[in-house]
Nucleic acid binder design. Structure first.
Lengths: 251, 251
DNA sequence: GAGTGTGAAACGCTTCACAGCA
DNA sequence: TGCTGTGAAGCGTTTCACACTC
């Protein structure tokens, strides 16, 4: 009855709550109400309480939640009590950025291996770690007990890189290359596709422009009587990924 | 009756289909069946057909779809017939990567402005475009008719950068900073949060480990009799963001 | 009184299955 | 016969509303 059946969408939000809670803890807060926390995380309070109910009942009615307790429990559910060693493959612009990324929170995701094919890069330390060759992915990954692989290569190389990561025992992969990866069932993949994210934004802009047109433009047109909600409906933005992904759908 | 009510999730997938179709077109394909296209895009064929039905009925029963027709229609729906000029704010590692990113597909999202606070960077061209100061965001954005802003700054700067982008007339924002942005209703935001993506992966690994434990481990424990599905259920991975995402949730 | 925890209703997305057309 | 297009069923997520507890 541990991590029974938490909805995927809720998992993504729990990670957000965790970040917000960490910030609150640093500023000395000891308790929060669902109202405060949900506002800071950009969701409504009912959803927040529902999400937290999946991790357990750690609140005090009439008072709120203890920040430290929530942090610990969410970390437990997300599996952040273990270390997840990370390898970055493809040390181009994006790979560099990822290798130096301080954003992988203190506890959690140390970058322990880098790979590329460029002879000028092999052996050169980036962010303190020397770059190895793509061919050495399997041995290096199993030796250093890498569990997370990040693919930041051109799309043509992505599948073969992926196969080698899997051969090296990697359990999950974050894929920045715009291709659909084939992996065995025991490997988890998430995709972050910048171009897709931008195109989704483009769609929303276009839809609004169309609405505005059909609206104030010429109402006489055949289909002008649009069912407009209109404009500002909900405020909650941006999902995990679901798609998401980064939800990069940068995924 | 233009872009009436297409589900968010479907929009994200349409962008993926578009990429796959472009690849097919380059290789000389003129028609595809829903089966082929869905396989290449990593979804099932029923979902694909449903998604395409939102853009219209452009297939031929018994045959399939004309690649060029689908490409045009999806581009129309996604609003890719207009140009969307992009500004990147925060020219650190990630900002560099984004400024040089060739992945913004040919038609679509030219990067036209860069911003940072570092005096050593101001005026220096990156990817052919000189870096301007954060304070100049509003005038530069309106002058160059920027419609998309990408925030790649540290989290502390993100909200103020966001406000300036909005002041400059930017209509949508792709946010890589791990903060919840407040924007007026007419501005669309998508978030790409690397740390969140990794934590989602972490959760799935942890869940599997727990399952395996409860499974083959010691079945005598109080809660060991888990309702295990088990192992390999669906194969469809990773959503848009709805997630999220880069989706990057990176999303 | 204040605020959590949660069944139940509402909603949206996915899958199914088959009618319809080339 | 083959494959698209789509109503209807199924399922997961969100929202509601209120019982319950401090």
């Amino acid at each position: 009855m541990r991590a029974k059946q938490i909805p995927e969408a809720a998992v993504a939000r729990l990670a957000v709550y965790l970040r917000v809670l960490s910030g609150m803890a640093e500023q000395g807060a000891t308790t929060v109400s669902s109202e405060e926390l949900s506002a800071a995380a950009g969701v409504n309070s009912a959803k927040l309480r529902k999400d937290l109910s999946y991790v357990g009942s750690y609140g005090t009615r009439g008072v709120g939640y203890e920040v430290q307790v929530l942090v610990s429990q969410i970390e437990r559910i997300l599996g952040l009590t273990r270390q997840h060693r990370v390898a970055v493959v493809g040390i181009g612009n994006l790979g560099h950025a990822l290798a130096n990324y301080g954003g992988f929170p203190g506890r959690g995701f140390p970058v322990e291996a880098l790979f590329d094919t460029d002879p000028d890069l092999i052996g050169v330390p980036v962010g303190g770690i020397p770059v190895s060759h793509l061919e050495d992915i399997p041995p290096v990954c199993s030796e250093r007990e890498i569990s997370v692989g990040i693919i930041a290569t051109p799309p043509t190389a992505a599948q073969s890189v992926c196969d080698r990561l899997v051969a090296g025992g990697v359990q999950c992969i974050l894929n920045f290359a715009p291709v659909v990866l084939r992996v065995p069932a025991h490997v988890e993949v998430r995709k972050v596709d910048l171009a897709v994210e931008l195109q989704i934004l483009s769609f929303h802009v276009a839809r609004r422009a169309d609405d505005a047109l059909g609206n104030q433009g010429n109402p006489g047109l055949p289909d002008a009587g649009l069912p407009i909600d209109n404009g500002t409906k909900g405020d909650g933005r941006n999902g995990a990924g679901t798609d998401g992904g980064l939800g990069m759908v940068v995924r």
